[in-house]
Amino acid sequence: MQNEFPKLSSKEMTALEMLIHKGEMFGLEMVEASEGELKRGTIYVTLSRMCDKGYLDSREEPRTMPEIGIPRRKYWATGLGEKVYEANVRAIEIFKELAWGV
């Protein structure tokens, strides 16, 4: 099972790409930055699954004084997440090279 290639879905790729290149982000920021690829209803399901796999980590960010409501959650990519992302990017490149000679 450990030798299995950790394939990422397109949503997971987008989320990891953003977190690696832009650093720590809130879920809502990721939805807005993805320009429609990540949706409000699916983002947290995807992020929680990625946290379970160890690709991401998160913490609760307490709200500053005038703001009210429950604390928001900030996410960042772990070392494993970065490696998995790199592996997937390289796998796609190799596939393109073999399939179309790009």
Partner: peptide, 11 residues
Amino acid sequence: TFEPIVADWQE
């Protein structure tokens, strides 16, 4: 899953 959605909703 659900608390972050509610947090964004409230925001």
